[in-house]
Each structure stands twice: as C-alpha cells, then as structure tokens.
C-alpha cells in the first residue's frame, strides 16, 4: 500500500489526509458531519414549511396566497448568499432582543441552529413549489372520494394526498436535497466551520491546496452519488403498483 502511494507520488497527500493529528483527515470528516447535520435539518425544516406553504397556496384565502407568492418569488430571485446574511442578522437580532426583553442578556447562537434556520427558510420556498405541483398531480377523484366518505382533513392528507403525491414529488425533493447539501458550503462565507471552511483552513495552513480541495470534492461527490442512489430506490418504492409507462410514448 505504502509502496503504491510512493510510486504515485501521493505519499505526502496521504500523510496530510491521515486521520490522526498531524494529518487533517479528522477535521474534514468533522466538517462533513456538520455539513450533513445542517443539510438534514434544513431539508426537514424546508419540508415542513413547504407542506404548509403548498396547502396554503392551494386551499388558502386570497391574502395567504398572495403572501406565499411573494415569499416564494423573493426567495427564488435573491442569491442564497444574500439571504443567508439577511436571515442570519435578523435571526440573531430577534433572539437577542427577545432574550434581553425577558431579562436574560445576550445569548450565543450555535452555528448549526443558525444554519438550519437560514437554509430551511430558503429550502421552504423551493419545496413549496415542488409539493404544490405534486399535490396538483394527484387525481382529483381520489381526494373527492375520501371527502365523500367523510374523512377528516388531516387523515385525508396522511392517508391519501401524501402517499399519492409522493411519486410526483420525489424527483423534485431529491434535487432539493442535493441543493441543500451543496448550499451548506455557502455557510463557510459567514464563518461556520463546515466541510468547505475546514478544508480551506487545512489547505491554507499546509499550502497543499489541490490535495485538500480535491479530497473535499470527493467527499461531496460521495454524498451526492449515494443520496441519488437512495432517492432512486425510494422513488421506485413510491411508484410500486403504478403501471409502467415504458414504451408508451411511441
């Protein structure tokens, strides 16, 4: 193994990337863990916003519909980096004011929580649109049938709408999840030590830029490829029982 690394001239890179302290491997993995944590949280928070947003856009009154339209349009037109800064400052300001009003003094906000809040609001706008489209694609007769039998709204959502829309929503949600994992890199700009920032710190203190940025790229790529495979499985499962459309278009 070591001979092979020497042969390829990669011995120095392997040393730099090793997991024990002179190497920076552990820092990268810790960064990856934080990135994934933020991505999971933001994706979940975004889904919750998206579900409420989609229902609001479809069944809400005119005011709610207009407000949601403004939310989704603004979030999708302004760069994530700008939104991250605005939401970060607004979020910390509001929390500090609230805690000062309650007499607790300023509080320190954890980077992970702030990242989840900021990226979740951004993700929420996109998943509102994805879920709205998916709910619209559910045959209206199925929802009417459930209503005709007197199914209460929450049960209707849980038993009919969500399972039926899942196969339409999953491709869009898979895309959103990939965007969420990549958007965590933006948090490096505001100073959260997730994978990209850890990588940059490691790179600038060892001057081995290529080694570390390529290693981080490989980690991101691994996450992307694995989650694509997982979403394909999920999609196949959510489509079970639906007739195959293969060759129907000819």
């Amino acid at each position: 193994m070591e001979g092979l690394l020497d042969l390829l001239g990669l011995a120095k890179s392997a040393e730099l990337l090793s997991l024990s302290p002179p190497g920076w491997g552990m820092n990268l993995l810790r960064g990856l863990g934080k990135s994934l944590q933020i991505a999971f949280g933001a994706f979940g928070f975004g889904l919750v916003i998206g579900l409420f947003g989609a229902y609001g856009k479809l069944y809400g009154g005119p005011v709610i519909r207009d407000l949601l339209a403004i939310y989704t349009t603004v979030v999708r037109a302004v760069p994530e980096l700008v939104l991250i800064l605005i939401l970060y400052f607004v979020g910390t300001d509001l929390i500090n004011r609230a805690s000062e009003a309650l007499g607790y003094g300023r509080v320190e906000i954890s980077g992970v929580a702030a990242g989840i809040w900021v990226l979740g609001v951004v993700q929420g706008a996109y998943s509102t649109e994805v879920l709205r489209g998916a709910i619209l694609a559910v045959p209206q007769g199925q929802i009417e049938a459930a209503r005709a039998f007197g199914m209460p709204p929450v049960m209707l959502m849980r038993r009919v709408t969500i399972p039926a829309m899942l196969s339409f929503a999953l491709p869009g949600l898979a895309n959103l999840w990939l965007i969420a994992t990549k958007d965590t890199a933006l948090l490096a700009v505001v100073g959260f030590s997730e994978l990209t920032l850890e990588t940059r710190q490691a790179a600038s203190s060892t001057r081995a830029y290529f080694t570390f940025f390529l290693a981080a790229g490989a980690l991101y790529l691994m996450v992307t490829l694995m989650s694509s495979a997982l979403f394909q499985l999920l999609e196949r499962r959510s489509r079970r029982g639906q007739p195959s459309l293969k060759g129907a278009g000819r």
Binding site: D183, T184, T196, F213, G217
Partner: peptide, 23 residues
C-alpha cells in the same frame, strides 16, 4: 457533468483560484 453538479460551486471556485493560483 456529474463532477460539476456533485460538488459545491464555492469549492470549485476556491480549487481553481487557490489551487491553480498556487501552481
């Protein structure tokens, strides 16, 4: 296409600027 779409743009920018810039 997979490489570009699978990694964050920020990382690509830093790889090119710091990586190539140091070489």
């Amino acid at each position: 296409c997979t490489l570009i779409r699978g990694t964050p743009l920020l990382l690509q920018i830093w790889l090119l600027y710091y990586g190539l810039g140091s070489v």
